[in-house]
């Protein structure tokens, strides 16, 4: 028993390892993993990477230009901008990744349920989706974030509002899979609903979900930056959006370009990285997506290459063919 379990764990680990290797082999995936990896390491080792603290007020040194001590300068209170960005990565990653996972999980569950478990559940879920699609999301979030300003609240609100896109996509996918003959065959063979769901439908939508997670992580990071920019973020933690608010107040007039550019670059790198991973997953899991570029022989125009292939197509003449036939009949072709 124990041995079986360990074997299973081993094969699962090996499967995951192979999968990661596949991502690394894909050029987009490699780029994405490197970019996200840098940000993750920066977030984890923020206290090691910077000698400054987030609450190290040093007003005398405020609004300093980038220098050797402060690579990106300091803000109004003399706090190092680079330090703020490093710590800001933490909240951005936490919110982006948890929301991405939660949204995918909730959206997938509701999407599958709406497609597979009867008309009542479908009607209820589709109506909720219709309402959510009409409500302007940002204003609703602004109103709801008055509930509590903790970043956990932000994750909850994002999840509550953001799942409908995923649910619609999953529902459409499940519906199209259910029309496939192999699902019908499984039903005819007497497979129970939950068996078919876990054995057949889940694997078929899983690639969509993995990809969706990566892409929604990217989307929610941008949304988080926007919300904290309009002042709805958690006041107790540093975030990239917040750095930009402070920058708009002071950096513009004093021409501190690094203060404005660096947080934006940080957002771009992280979001771009996640998106690249998403696209790589799409290519790996859905091979039809991969479009090979037409092979091009060096220095030969396609017309010339086609000409060469045309030449290969010539038929032999009847006389040659007759000779060949005679040869074969005598058996003399064997050398």
């Amino acid at each position: 028993m124990m041995k079986k379990l360990t074997n299973q764990i081993f094969s699962a680990v090996r499967g995951i390892g192979k999968f990661i290797l596949k991502i690394l082999k894909n050029p987009k995936g490699r780029l994405g993993v490197i970019l996200v990896g840098i940000v993750v390491l920066a977030a984890i080792f923020a206290p090691v990477l910077t000698p400054y603290e987030l609450d190290a007020y040093d007003v005398a040194n405020g609004l300093a230009k980038p220098s050797r001590e402060h690579l990106l300068g300091t803000d109004k209170n003399g706090i190092d901008i680079l330090t703020q960005i490093l710590y800001g990565a933490r909240i951005s990653l936490i919110i982006g990744i948890t929301t991405g996972l939660c949204v995918t999980l909730l959206g997938a569950t509701l999407g599958i349920v709406s497609a597979y478990f009867g008309k009542v559940s479908a009607a209820v879920i589709l109506n909720i989706i219709n309402v959510l699609l009409v409500i302007p999301t940002t204003p609703l979030m602004m109103i709801m974030s008055n509930l509590s300003s903790s970043y956990l609240m932000m994750i909850a609100i994002f999840t509550l509002i953001g799942w409908c896109g995923t649910a619609r996509m999953v529902r459409a996918q499940v519906l199209s899979i259910m029309n496939m003959n192999y699902i019908r065959a499984a039903e005819l063979a007497g497979g129970s609903k939950s068996y078919i769901m876990f054995r057949h439908i889940m694997p078929a939508v899983s690639h969509l979900l993995i990809m969706n997670t990566a892409l929604s992580c990217a989307g929610f990071m941008i949304a988080e930056a926007g919300l904290s920019f309009i002042g709805l973020g958690d006041p107790s933690v540093m975030s990239w959006g917040k750095i930009l608010v402070a920058a708009q107040e002071s950096a513009f007039t004093s021409g501190l370009w690094a203060w404005v550019l660096a947080p934006g670059a940080a957002i771009f790198i992280t979001v771009f990285g996640f998106m690249q991973i998403g696209y790589a997953l799409e290519e790996i899991l859905n091979p039809r997506m991969k479009r090979k570029k037409a092979a091009r022989v060096k220095n030969v125009s396609p017309e010339a290459a086609a000409e060469a292939v045309f030449a290969e197509m010539a038929d032999i003449s009847e006389e040659e063919a007759d000779m060949l036939k005679a040869e074969f009949e005598k058996g003399s072709h064997v050398k």
Partner: peptide, 13 residues
């Protein structure tokens, strides 16, 4: 036949 697998026949008239 073996001949068939070796060479494409022409269109005999």
């Amino acid at each position: 036949t073996e001949l068939c697998t070796q060479k494409q026949p022409p269109l005999y008239d």
